[in-house]
Amino acid sequence: MTEALVGEGRGANGAALVEMTMQQAINRALDTALREDPATLVFGEDVGRLGGVFRVTDGLQAAYGQNRVFDTPLAESGIVGLAVGLAMNGWRPIPELQFDGFAYPAVDQIVNQMARMHYRSRGAASMPITVRLPSFGGIQAPEHHGESLEALFAHVPGLKVVAPSDPNDAYRLLLQSIRSDDPVIYMEPKARYWDRRQVVLDGARAQAADTGGDPIGASRIARPGRHATLVAWGAMVHRCLRVAELAAEDGVDLEVLDLRWLKPIDTDGLAASVSRTRRAVVVHEAPLTAGLGAEVSSLITERVFCDLAAPVQRVTGFDVPYPAGPLEPQYLPTIDRILLAVQRTLEF
């Protein structure tokens, strides 16, 4: 993978500043984890010899050998089951489930074993597993390759769920997930894999424990604004930023809150933003009914009801199976649908 060193190439604390795609950022985070901790293991379908169907694990098997980076059979339940057994024996597994829709066969191991082993063993067995799950739509892929499972996993006690929106967060949040002793579902927005930006890489090994400032569960204001807050995660953050640019042409100043962690949700950050702007629109790709937007909407209402100038709006996918490629643009929240929801909050 080619990367360009930016400027001096060194930021604060000796950390390197490098411009790279999200694919490369995730690859670098895995590389950092494999280097700093000999207990980390990367495995899944095609992650070894092939280097991953999106090149995310490119070169890792060559660098760390077949014992630490390896291919598994096409059996997702087995992949997560293997991770659970390894974690119980002191390893720090980073399994990949190749696509969102392929997580369904692994739900038994994720929900019945991985999520509750720590609880079941009264703390004796921690589950420092990070399940990498290429997620969401936007690349016109076939069925089972465009699903948004965040609400399903956020509902399961014992799991943490995170979805980065840009390369720097992808790097940072993945390392944070891996270094956590709890199981994390790390949802990679496939549509943003090719997004290229500056990433602050870890400097010397001495800073390896530093997770870059924000604790697990912290959201991020991707764009400050004063008239309404757009709440999003994954690829929808970028779309909301574009909406905010268009709204600015009309004199409407939108804040974009990148939730990042879908469990735990940053209720304080959410409440603070909406309390300022007095209006909120939640945007996600998943279907509307019982989607995470409902949870976000509830949290806002519970925390800052009296500050609200309008009911919280939701702009989501539809309550239908994720459509085949050509219909994807109509299914995903469009710029106009988001703008309409903003207008509804402004006119209420």
Binding site: H227, L246, A247, D250, G251, V252, A309, I335, D336, L339, L340, V342, Q343, L346, E347
Partner: peptide, 8 residues
């Protein structure tokens, strides 16, 4: 885009 906004 087709939707235009009116500031509050």
């Amino acid at each position: 885009r087709r939707v235009r906004l009116r500031p509050p």
